[in-house]
Simulated scan of single mutants.
Amino acid sequence: MSLVNKFEFPDNKFDLYFLAYDSPKAASHGKHWTDREGIIELTHNYGTENDAKYKIHNGNKDPKGFGHVCVSVDNIQAACKRLSDAGYKFQKRLEDGRMRHIAFALDPDEYWVEIIAQNPVSETENVTTTDLETYRMNHTMIRVKDKDISLKFYQDVMGMTLQRTSENKDANFNLYFLGYGAPVGEKSANGVNPSANREGLLELTWNYGTEKEEGKVYHDGNAEPQGFGHICVSVDDLDAACKRFEDLNVNWKKRLTDGRMKNVAFVLDPDGYWIEVIQNEKYKAAPGKY
């Protein structure tokens, strides 16, 4: 990935780093950082690097909530070997378990990074090279209590489209992939995940029966123990979008008018995950700015 933007807040003792794939072969090459779909925001609170007791909660141990981010790659065997040769750890290697077409690498804070294939796995077994310029920041996964309530929220309120569904009845869970734009469909001409070349998708994981549990089931990552913070949606007109959300009676973490930062808002989804809402500068830019 490339660093496409950075904000420093020394008075508040934290910095933000925004990373994305930005090569000529990337999905959003050269776009303004607010006009991209495949972005990862890293938050660094000053001093944590020197605190031996400081540990990030990755969301996959109790209390669970956030699951992983996902990167799609050209040649998955070569991509995983490259990471392994560099000394990075894996939660799941390609050869582990029954699912031989996905892997999970661990980043330095032990967040899970799923690795999926853009090409049929059977055709890349003997390929020894991988082209990083073709990678995609494919999706972010969160667990949800009630699939119907969450799907309605992300479609009707956030304006997303259900891209595809993966039912896993034997394992008692379903996966729902949402994003902006037309659905990709369930079939793929090359035999792999039909949305593997997309960026910025949201994966909802629904474990059967959680909708019957009392109270809150999943951890939002912002209460202790901290880890995952939020997803983010950029909009054409920030004021109009927030007025629409207000009219739809959403639950707010922060309205535009709250606090000192008047250029961001945070909506809460049905499970209490934070959704940051920002202005897409493409729609506010002066001619020739980009």
Rank of each mutant, 00 (worst) to 15 (best):
R36K: 14
E276H: 03
K81V: 12
K282T: 15
E133T: 15
N249Q: 14
Q163P: 03
G221M: 02
A20Y: 08
L201S: 03
D85K: 11
I102R: 00
D107L: 02
K243Q: 15
A105R: 02
K284L: 14
P10V: 08
H44P: 11
A20S: 15
V250I: 13
M99W: 06
F9G: 00
Y176M: 06
N75G: 10
S72E: 05
Y135G: 08
A285K: 12
V192C: 01
T161R: 06
K216E: 14
Y154K: 00
E246N: 04
W252F: 09
L175F: 15
E125I: 11
E224I: 13
K169Y: 11
K53M: 06
F228I: 07
Y46A: 12
Q118P: 10
D51M: 01
A117W: 03
L83N: 03
Q226C: 05
M99K: 05
S72L: 06
N207R: 07
V277Q: 02
Q155N: 11
K243P: 06
R136M: 05
K61V: 13
V73E: 03
F245V: 07
G185K: 05
Q77H: 14
E37K: 08
L202P: 01
Y21E: 15
T43L: 04
R255Q: 13
Y273S: 01
K216T: 14
Y290M: 11
E213R: 04
K89N: 14
Y176C: 05
T210C: 00
W206H: 15
K25R: 12
S84R: 02
S195A: 15
Y176W: 02
P120I: 09
A182K: 15
D35T: 10
F245E: 07
Q226Y: 02
A285P: 08
T210Q: 04
E186G: 04
E41A: 10
I116T: 12
V69F: 10
V250S: 04
N190W: 03
E8R: 08
E199A: 04
V4A: 07
Q91P: 01
M137H: 10
A52R: 07
